[in-house]
Write a protein that binds this DNA or RNA. Structure first.
Length: 470
RNA sequence: GGUGGGUUGGCCGAGAGGCGAGGCAACGGACUGCAAAUCCGUGUACACGGGUUCAAAUCCCGUACCCACCUCCA
C-alpha cells in the first residue's frame, strides 16, 4: 500500500514517490502576517499538519518548511494606517498566528523562514535569472526587476493557462515591463511613500523582494533545488505557485514534484477575507468550542472540499467528537489506567489516509471502532478493550486529535486540581442522592440531581455508581 | 474571455457503475426508578432533462444555479 496524493500539476491522484527513499521534503506557503488569523487561514495549516503526521507515521523522515511573508504591500499599508512600524505589525501578527496554530495542535514546522531573513538568497536567485536571460531590471529607473514571462515557454503549465489569455499583472507600473504579464522579483524602494526600514541594498538599488521570489529562494535553501511536495491554498495556484515554479525552473532548479492545494472555508458562500466582522477569528471561535473540537471539524471534511462554515455544524462536530472522547475516558476508567499509546491502526484507516488523505473515511473508521469499543465496555474483556481503545487513540493521534496529547493542555479534560475540588464538593451531594435512591425517594434524588445540574454538572448513573462531568 | 471546482436525505459530510461511509437530529426497542450514556433497529438522498448500460448518485450530452482563480488572498 502506497500513499497516493492529488497533484494539481497533473490533476490526478498519483502514487507518492519521494526523491530520496524514506524522506519527504514539504514546503507550505504560510501566511502574510498582516492581520489576525481566522478559521479559514488555519485550515490550510491543519490540512498540511495531517499530511506531515501521516508521512511521519508512514515512516518518512519529514522536513517541513512553512514560511511567513513578513514584508509586502499590505503590511506596509496597514501598518501605516495603524501608525506603527511595519515590522511591529508583522511580528505581532506572526505571534497571533503561532498562538492560533498552537491552540489547534498544529506542530511547529521544522523551520519557519521569513522573507526578510532571506534577502541575500533572493538576490542570488534574481542574479541567476538575469544571467539566464529570464529576468531584467526595469528600464524606467524604478529599481524594479521583473521576470520575463515571454522568455519562459512553459509559463502557465501548472495552471494550464496560455499567456495570451491572462490578464496583466498589476503589481507595478507596466511602463517598465516588456510584457504586462511580467511580474516583480524585486521592487524598488519608493522613497516618498515607503519607510527606509522596508528597503534592502541590492545591485538594482534599494528595494524589497517581490511576493513570489521568497518562496523559491527559501524552498531552495532548506529543501534543495528539487523537493517533494509544495502546498498551499487553492487561491495560490495562480499567480503565486505558477510564478514560483517559473522562477525556479527558469533558474534551472527542478522545484516541487507534487503540488497540493487545500480548498476554502467559506461563510455565506463567500471566501472569508471578504466577510466582515471578527467573529471568525480563531480566539473568538475558541470561545464556543475547544481547539480539539475545531480541529476535528476541519479534519472531518476532505482537504480538497469546500467547507461552508457554520457554528451549527461546528457544534455538531464537537458533539460527534465528544462521543469518541467519552469512550476513551470510560475505557481508561474501566481499565484502571491510561489508554496505551501506540495502538494498532486499522487497515481501513490506513487505506483511507493513503488515498489522498481521506480523513472523512478515516474518521468514520474511528467511529466504527468506538462502537465496537463501547460494546467491549459492557462485555468486559479488558485485553480486547485495551487494544481497541489504544487503536482509537493511535488513529486520533495521526489526525492530531489525541485527547491525551499534552499539547491540548488543561483545556481538554480540565485542570486536575480543580477537578479534585469539585469532586469533593459534588461527592457529598451524590452520596446523599444515593441514600435517597436506596430509599426509593425518587423525588428527592431527582431534586439533588437538578440542583447539581443547575451548577453546570451532569450526573450519570453507572453500574459502578454515579459519575459527574462538566 | 480563459482556467478549475461544485449541486448528495431534516442537517453536516463521504463515495465515483451493482452492495445505503460516518456523524448530528428524529423515531422505535433494550438497559435505567426516571434520566444520561451505550447498544440494536428505522431512511427508498444524490440539481434538472435526455442518453449509454443487464445495472447510473457515479459514464456521456445538454440545461440551470453556485463558487474559486486570472498577478502581492489560506
Amino acid at each position: 500500500m502506497t500513499l497516493r496524493l492529488h497533484d494539481t500539476a497533473t490533476r490526478e491522484v498519483r502514487d507518492f514517490v519521494p526523491l530520496e527513499e524514506g524522506k519527504a521534503g514539504i514546503y507550505v506557503c504560510g501566511l502574510t502576517v498582516q492581520s489576525e488569523p481566522h478559521v479559514g487561514h488555519v485550515r490550510s495549516a491543519v490540512n498540511f499538519d495531517v499530511l506531515r503526521r501521516w508521512l511521519t507515521a508512514s515512516g518518512y523522515q519529514v522536513t517541513f518548511i512553512r514560511n511567513v511573508t513578513d514584508i509586502d504591500d499590505k503590511i506596509l499599508v496597514k501598518s501605516a494606517e495603524q501608525g506603527r512600524p511595519w515590522f511591529n505589525l508583522a511580528y505581532d501578527m506572526h505571534r497571533e498566528l503561532t498562538r492560533a496554530l498552537d491552540s489547534i495542535n498544529v506542530l511547529p514546522p521544522t523551520y519557519e523562514p521569513a522573507a526578510t531573513g532571506h534577502v541575500p538568497e533572493i538576490l542570488d536567485l534574481i542574479d541567476r535569472l538575469i544571467k539566464a536571460g529570464h529576468a531584467y531590471a526595469a528600464e524606467d529607473g524604478s529599481g524594479d526587476v521583473y521576470f520575463d514571462v515571454r522568455s519562459w515557454p512553459q509559463y502557465g503549465e501548472l495552471t494550464r493557462q496560455r499567456v495570451e489569455d491572462m490578464e496583466p499583472a498589476g503589481d507595478a507600473d507596466p511602463r517598465g515591463k516588456r510584457d504586462p504579464r511580467d511580474f516583480a522579483l524585486w521592487k524598488g524602494w519608493k522613497k516618498d511613500s515607503e519607510p527606509a526600514t522596508a528597503a534592502w541594498p541590492s545591485p538594482y538599488g534599494p528595494g524589497r523582494p517581490g511576493w513570489h521570489i521568497e518562496c523559491s529562494a527559501m524552498a531552495g535553501k532548506y529543501l534543495g533545488k528539487a523537493f517533494d511536495i509544495h502546498g498551499g491554498g487553492v487561491d495560490l495556484r495562480f499567480p503565486h505557485h505558477e510564478n514560483e515554479q517559473a522562477q525556479s525552473r527558469a533558474a534551472d532548479d527542478p522545484f516541487a514534484s507534487y503540488w497540493l492545494h487545500n480548498a476554502w472555508i467559506t461563510t455565506a458562500g463567500e471566501k472569508m477575507s471578504k466577510s466582515l466582522g471578527n467573529s471568525l477569528l480563531v480566539p473568538e471561535v475558541l470561545k464556543r468550542v475547544r481547539g480539539i473540537e475545531l480541529r476535528f471539524y476541519m479534519v472531518s471534511a476532505h482537504y480538497r472540499s469546500h467547507v461552508e462554515f457554520s457554528f451549527e455544524a461546528l457544534e455538531e462536530a464537537a458533539k460527534s467528537f465528544q462521543r469518541i472522547e467519552n469512550y476513551l475516558a470510560r475505557a481508561a476508567e474501566a481499565l484502571g489506567r491510561e489508554v496505551p499509546s501506540g495502538g494498532a491502526l486499522c487497515a481501513e484507516f490506513t487505506e483511507a489516509m493513503d488515498d489522498d488523505l481521506g480523513t472523512p473515511a478515516a474518521v468514520a473508521v474511528i467511529h466504527d471502532v468506538v462502537r465496537e469499543g463501547n460494546k467491549l465496555l459492557t462485555d468486559g474483556d479488558p485485553e480486547a478493550l485495551s487494544g481497541n481503545a489504544a487503536s482509537v487513540r493511535a488513529m486520533l493521534a495521526i489526525l492530531g486529535l489525541d485527547p491525551a496529547d499534552p499539547a491540548w493542555g488543561a483545556t481538554s479534560r480540565g485542570d486536575d486540581k480543580l477537578t479534585g475540588v469539585v469532586d469533593a464538593l459534588v461527592r457529598g451531594l451524590l452520596e446523599e442522592r444515593e441514600r435517597a435512591r436506596l430509599e426509593k425517594d425518587w423525588a428527592r434524588a431527582d431534586a439533588i440531581r437538578d440542583q447539581i445540574k443547575a451548577a453546570g454538572i451532569e450526573v450519570e448513573d453507572t453500574p459502578t455508581g454515579p459519575k459527574w462531568s462538566v
